[in-house]
């Protein structure tokens, strides 16, 4: 399974870049044959609460994600997607089983993580630049240089990233002066400014209109292609999953586990038009029927259903 993924993983242009720098084995192949995947779930179970009120969110979930991969997680509401993401972010401990990140058990891992939720949670008392810069104030090694470089190097870095997501010139604005879509762009910047090894996204585009969302997909794709961060994306939107990810994992209804694991082999950079091509639509329909079945539905695609 992981081998198939590795073949999908490097996007065309970056694959070429890797060859040009003379180390074709660094991407994909070498990593798969080497010891462990970047993220590994080993029969992870998560339970909330005690006694009668106990809720089992995850049931013996196993999952492996290669470094630099872009994995989307879809499934019925309440199936434990956010829970899985929180496990990776070390915000939650598994009740049983193990989560390994970077080959080590969680907590002991000194990797850098960026996170973005549907709610942009920008700090209202700071302008956009300072909001985006916040991780640099906290994460080593930037932390120790923060006061020295905040007005120079870090500032330029923030401006460059803001420009990449189409927010050039908005650094001095305050969050309440921005639209929802713009805040979400700034939120993405905040999740990326400290060059994380791992990006965790929980329905980051869920609250946006379709056109803004599609624009942000493209921005997200560009960012991922330029940075090669490992991304784990939770979404309800199958088009979004198909457009962005190298691989889509479908989860069962609660208690969640991985039902299906499909590679998405479309060439990058992908365009929005691709999402209307027959092959893409077929993938979408297959995933959709899986989720409908997981929800306890008939599995028959109902006309006009969600």
């Amino acid at each position: 399974m992981t081998l198939a993924l590795a073949k999908v993983a490097p996007p065309p242009d970056d694959g070429m870049a890797a060859q040009e720098t003379g180390s074709p084995e660094t991407d994909g192949a070498a990593r798969v044959s080497s010891a462990r995947p970047f993220i590994e779930f080993e029969k992870v179970t998560v339970r909330f609460g005690k006694g009668d009120k106990q809720v089992q969110a995850l049931s013996e979930t196993s999952l492996a994600i290669a470094e630099g991969d872009f994995v989307a997680l879809v499934g019925p509401s309440g199936c434990g997607k956010s829970t899985l993401l929180k496990l990776v972010g070390d915000l939650l401990k598994p009740s049983t089983g193990h989560v390994f990140v970077g080959g080590r058990e969680l907590g002991a891992t000194p990797i850098r993580i960026g996170m973005a939720y549907q709610n942009p949670t920008l700090l209202p008392w700071m302008n956009i630049r300072d909001n985006v810069m916040l991780p640099l104030k906290i994460v080593p090694p930037f932390r120790s240089e923060f006061s020295a470089k905040r007005k120079t190097e870090f500032r330029d870095r923030v401006e460059a990233l803001l420009a990449q997501v189409g927010l050039a010139g908005f650094g001095d604005k305050f969050p309440w002066q921005l639209s929802g879509g713009m805040m979400q762009r700034a939120n993405l910047c905040r999740a990326l400014i400290h060059e994380p090894d791992l990006l965790l996204l929980d329905e980051p585009f869920g609250a946006l209109d379709q056109f803004t969302r599609e624009e942000l997909w493209q921005i997200m794709q560009d960012l991922w292609m330029s940075k090669k961060t490992t991304v784990l994306l939770v979404t309800h939107d199958l088009r979004e999953a198909g457009f962005l990810a190298n691989r889509i994992c479908v989860m069962s209804a609660r208690p969640g586990r991985i039902l299906d694991d499909s590679p998405v082999a479309f060439a990058r950079p992908r365009g929005i038009d691709m999402t209307y091509e027959a092959e893409f639509v077929a993938l979408n329909q297959r995933l959709r029927s899986l989720i409908v079945a997981a929800r306890g539905g008939t599995g028959i695609v109902q006309a006009g259903g969600h």
Binding site: L91, N119, I138, V139, H194
Partner: peptide, 27 residues
């Protein structure tokens, strides 16, 4: 403080003090 924001801070490995100083107190 919004739990999402707290999550974001915790994934940055922010200490309790970092969170208090940068987020909770101004808020």
């Amino acid at each position: 403080v919004e739990p999402e924001l707290e999550d974001v801070m915790k994934t940055l490995k922010a200490s309790k003090w970092d969170i208090l100083w940068n987020v909770s107190l101004p808020r």
